[in-house]
Amino acid sequence: MNANNKIGNSTFAFKTAWQRYGTLGILILLLTILAALKPGYFFQPSTVTQILSQSSVNILIALGEFFAILIAGIDLSVGSVTALSGMVTAKLMVAGIAPLPAVILGILLGAILGFINGILVNGTGLHPFIITLGTQAIFRGITLIISDSSAIFGFPASFTTFMAKRFIYIPVSAFIALVAALVLAFLTNKTKLGRNIYALGGNKESAWYSGINVKLHTLIVFIISGICAGIAGAVLLGRVGSAEPAAATGFETYAIAAAIIGGTSFFGGKGKIFGVVMGGLIIGVINFGMNLLSVSSTLQQVVMGALIIGSVTLDRFVAGNK
């Protein structure tokens, strides 16, 4: 009905502002709360370093997850892809291959794993949830097999020192996440490929009738997700200093949470890279804050879960989407 179209301008303006900057607002609010609770610890340069370093891996994985959710799908295998490509990168480095080619090969492996996800989704016609639930287990299993279920360490010094570098308290990992975010923001906002992905996420049938190759775009989306997880794998190696077979277990939950908190619609077609980065930072700040406030790790899980439900409910309530 017409009646619903003509909402007051102020409501409209608020909605737009909320959609654009709502997550930034939440982030600032959280930081303020932390600063008020623990001013002594909070106002230290190392706080920035810690939050950014903890958030980087999560943001990188979430950036890929964002695309999977954008096409109304999901990628549950990102944690396993992170672990497997990290493990392979580690093995290559330990075997004497220089860090840079080793990392590139690891990222390439991430792309291949994403490609496998995409091919399976397209070929079977099953929902990505089912496919990636399966590949999550398969990729994790392969990680365990090739690592013999034990950690790999002893990377070249050039790798560990580079990854530990800081520029004005900002860790290298944060720069990597930033570059990835910028590249993907360009992809979503400025390229036809990005526009097509949004279209596909909004309506697969309309996309097909508009000449969009649905399967090709689905494949590309899963490859992007795999590449992001592959990069995250390398970054995680640098942070932890070793490749654990159980690394990044459950990280898909944080990635999904970051995307959703950042305003990505679970029904597809809506969301922004900026929001995903904000979502990843919010999760990072909450994790950091809870450690700072000495909240037990078990309780942290409860808080995180409540946060996911709460933020999405709030978003739907504010945005008024039915």
């Binding site: 036809k192 526009r195 097509n196 949004y198 279209a199 996420g201 909004g202 309506n203 049938e205 309309s206 996309a207 097909w208 009738y209 508009s210 000449g211 969009i212 619609s265 597809g268 077609g269 809506k270």
Partner: peptide
């Protein structure tokens, strides 16, 4: 179902086609 993109503005609904073509 098969015509427009509910998540797009009027402008984006129109431009999707010439962009692809």
């Amino acid at each position: 179902e098969t015509g427009f993109f509910h998540n797009f503005s009027i402008k984006k609904n129109i431009s999707v086609l010439p962009f692809i073509k």
